[in-house]
């Protein structure tokens, strides 16, 4: 019981401090020439929790998805991408670890993105930026 009482605030402290620093560090490191409208999603994830993000993607744009954070086991956050009907389209964990993912769609879609840690607890955030896709700019 005592251990729980001590551990809980410590765990909270662990999660809170990196959470505050997540957004500026991710933004500066990986945005490059992408435009970011300032929107981000951030959550503390414990015991296999996930956080859901709804987002509308348009064709002709390349989106940069930047999942940020690291868990208590140093695992990087991953993304599951679903369509609006909740059909799983991609799990980035199957594609290896990357700091960010670029995404292009051939048609307008509302997608659901699940942010999660494969193991451990911690704060996680997702930034979504965009720029004109090379194909569209060539046109």
């Amino acid at each position: 019981m005592k251990a729980t009482l001590i551990a809980t605030p410590l765990l909270f402290l662990y999660a809170q401090v990196p959470c505050k620093q997540l957004i500026p560090s991710c933004r500066e490191a990986y945005l490059e020439d992408f435009s970011w409208d300032g929107r981000y999603w951030r959550a503390e994830l414990y015991g296999g929790e996930t956080t859901e993000i709804y987002y509308t993607f348009f064709p002709g744009l390349r989106y940069r998805l930047i999942p940020c954070g690291s868990s208590s086991t140093k695992a990087a956050p991953h993304l599951r991408i679903y369509n609006a009907n909740r059909t799983l389209l991609l799990d980035t964990r199957q594609q290896g670890d990357r700091r960010y993912w670029d995404l292009e769609l051939s048609s307008t879609q509302l997608m659901v993105i699940e942010l999660y840690y494969p193991s451990g607890d911690g704060c996680a955030a997702l930034l979504i930026a965009h720029r004109i896709s090379m194909e569209a700019s060539a046109r």
């Binding site: 957004i23 409208d37 300032g38 929107r39 981000y40 999603w41 951030r42 959550a43 503390e44 994830l45 296999g48 929790e49 996930t50 956080t51 859901e52 993000i53 709804y54 609006a84 009907n85 909740r86 659901v112 699940e114």
Partner: peptide, 19 residues
């Protein structure tokens, strides 16, 4: 379905920009 229940944390309120 869009609102399928999941064990999920709500994203934090602050920081969001474009309402």
């Amino acid at each position: 379905m869009v609102f399928a229940a999941k064990v999920a944390r709500r994203p934090s309120l602050n920081g969001w920009v474009s309402k």
